[in-house]
Amino acid sequence: MQAYCAPMTATQTILDARACERTLRRMADEIVERTAGTESLVLVGIQRRGVQLAARLASLIEEREGRPVPRGALDITLYRDDLQTVGPRPLVGATELPVDIDGKQVVIVDDVLYTGRTVRAALDELADFGRPARILLAVLIDRGGQELPIRADVIGKVVTVPAGSQVDVRVAELDGDDTVIVGPARSRGA
């Protein structure tokens, strides 16, 4: 159930660079707490911005625990359930899992949890690579609006916005800075 929100008219920064940093630090701690250490831990980011976030979380965990944490990337395009209805075919990115995931504790990392369909696709894709002992979901932003029985285990920030509005996570590696911006709906591809 989603709370009523007035339609948005202007963009608003909900996390700036320093807030992102603090949030990621806490998420990193929460991940290790849940997985009881880095033994058998693998972080897998969903293309595109989940990959950078997974790398950040992995370094933060490495800093704290003094142990290397393998990280991978998952491109779920070929597993989407809406390929028959989206217009031109979306670009396919790289899926790279550096280690065998059998028996591992895999944390899927994404920027925004919305409908849950991306995570569903990611779960299917992971199953084609092996059978992890456990799969957790970590997201920087949970904006509500899930259409599937999927919930995040580790959440950076919960944001309540009207359906259709835009939640943009920017990461320094791709966008020049770390910020999370909420704004009114904009046409796709804009």
């Binding site: 989407r80 809406d82 028959q84 209805t85 031109p88 075919r89 409908t115």
Partner: peptide, 14 residues
Amino acid sequence: GRPDLAAAGTAAGE
């Protein structure tokens, strides 16, 4: 690309 269906589709990204 079935343009006829494209309008009905919702964004699955995010």
